[in-house]
């Protein structure tokens, strides 16, 4: 290497990585909510994103409804779909082996894919940009506006959920039901309701993420694929930890951005997994995953 090292470029890649990690953390939150609340890894998370983006496109662009109304309708609709899925698919499977439930969510993902294909077709749609595009400059470093705003939005939503689980009675009851459903039941908690709520929350989180991703790229049934990349994030973060989802989201964001910047887009797709593999060798529960607290 003869040319002097370009520190500015490195800083720029790293910062873009941090900010784009916000969205990864948001999607990861969707996975973590359901895993923590019901012990299921929901492989249809990406399809919640896809549905969110399509519903929003339909009501905002095709029906020309105002943005806020479209947003409200979309979130309500995806939450309803999530509740329906919980009731119709997950609840009958309660008590079945994990692998069956996992397969069910994978099947669900392709079914939702098929539905979207049948209703909207496989075309790409242009979504109107939602987040301000004006770039942020820090000295010589330039960060695209959408990336920063998506980070702020994700941070707000994650903070809201964290506060909800910490301070609201329903939020605390949801945590209780997640950690010990039987005991929660005998203390008067309607565990079925908390599980349904969990799915609805994850649906809302996914829908928001989907709308943002759709508005930053374009709308096609492939949009949900972004969620599969987030698997690396949740495994790294430890599956059941919101804090883990945030930190891991940012780490993977930075790694993706750096590898894309220096090694090109192809490498970018595998590097997160390699990193995860290496970290899991050292910390098998992920960075923040709970081991049981053992008291003897």
């Amino acid at each position: 290497m003869n040319a002097p090292f370009d520190w500015i470029a490195l800083a720029e890649f790293a910062l873009i990585g941090v900010f784009s990690g916000g969205l990864l953390a948001l999607i990861a939150l969707g996975f973590v909510l359901i895993y923590k609340g019901t012990g299921v890894i929901n492989f249809a998370m990406g399809e919640f994103m896809m549905l969110g983006a399509y519903f929003f496109y339909t009501s905002h662009v095709m029906w020309k409804l105002p943005m806020w109304l479209s947003l409200a309708l979309t979130l309500a609709a995806v939450a309803a779909v999530a509740a329906l899925i919980e009731r119709a698919i997950l609840r009958p499977l309660a008590g079945q082996p994990v692998i069956s439930i996992l397969m069910a969510t994978i099947g669900l993902a392709s079914a939702l894919h098929g539905v979207v294909d049948a209703v909207w077709g496989g075309n790409n749609y242009e979504m109107p940009p939602l987040l301000p595009r004006k770039a942020f400059t820090f000295g010589e470093i330039l960060i695209p506006g959408q990336v920063v705003w998506s980070f702020i939005l994700a941070a707000l939503i994650i903070t809201a959920f964290t506060l909800y689980f910490r301070y609201s009675r329903t939020g605390i009851a949801m945590r209780a039901a997640a950690s010990d459903p039987m005991t929660a039941y005998v203390l008067g908690i309607d565990v079925r309701r908390t599980q349904r709520l969990t799915w609805m929350f994850a649906g809302v989180v996914g829908a928001v993420a989907g709308i943002v991703v759709g508005s930053m790229t374009s709308l096609s049934p492939a949009l949900g694929g972004a969620a599969l990349g987030v698997l690396a994030v949740i495994i790294l973060g430890g599956l059941d930890s919101i804090a883990g989802a945030i930190v891991a989201g940012l780490i993977i964001g930075v790694i993706e951005s750096l590898t894309a910047g220096y090694l090109g887009g192809k490498v970018r797709d595998i590097v997160p997994y390699v990193t995860v593999l290496l970290i899991l060798l050292v910390k098998p529960y992920g960075l923040f995953g709970t081991r049981q607290i053992e008291r003897l």
């Binding site: 009675r169 209780a176 950690s179 039987m182 008067g188």
Partner: peptide, 28 residues
Amino acid sequence: IGHVREGRHVFEDLTVDENLIAAGSALI
């Protein structure tokens, strides 16, 4: 009907206060 299960079953990662708040669901 308040059932205190065998083996205590406190919600381990909740605080004492939060355990009691969760139990407030029985008053609904």
